[in-house]
Computed example of a mutant assay.
Amino acid sequence: MSAWGKIFTAIRGGANEAAEAVADSQSMRILDQEIRDAEQSLRQARSDLAGIMASNKSVMRRIEENRAKEAKDTDSARAAIAAGRTDLAQGLAQRIATIRTELQRDQAELDQLLPRQQQMLRAIQDTEARITQMKREVENVKANEALLKAQSALAHSQSGINTRLGSAVDSLERIKKRQEATAGRIAAGAELAALENGNDLDRQLLEAGIGGSSQSADDILAQLMSSPAQDPLALPTGKKNG
Rank of each mutant, 00 (worst) to 15 (best):
G14N: 10
E39R: 10
H156R: 13
G14Y: 14
R105T: 13
G238R: 05
A208E: 04
L92E: 01
A229G: 06
R116G: 15
Q158A: 14
I131G: 01
I81L: 11
D170M: 08
R62K: 14
G209A: 03
S213L: 12
N56M: 10
K149V: 08
A188P: 01
A168C: 05
T101P: 00
T101Y: 00
L121K: 11
R78F: 09
I30A: 07
E20K: 08
A181W: 05
L165N: 10
Q223G: 03
E180G: 07
R12W: 10
G166P: 13
S55M: 07
L224I: 08
I81W: 02
R136P: 03
D48K: 13
Q104K: 12
M28N: 12
Q40C: 01
A168T: 04
Q179Y: 12
S25M: 11
G189T: 14
G211M: 01
G212Q: 00
L42H: 04
K240A: 12
D106V: 03
G166R: 09
S58T: 15
R164T: 06
G5Y: 07
S157N: 12
A79Y: 11
A23H: 09
D37A: 08
S227C: 07
V169I: 15
A80V: 05
Q179C: 04
A21N: 12
A129E: 12
Q26I: 09
D170C: 06
M120P: 01
I96D: 04
A108H: 07
D75I: 10
L195D: 07
E196Y: 09
A93F: 00
D73T: 02
T237F: 14
A234G: 02
G51R: 10
D24V: 03
L201M: 09
S214H: 04
K6W: 06
S214W: 02
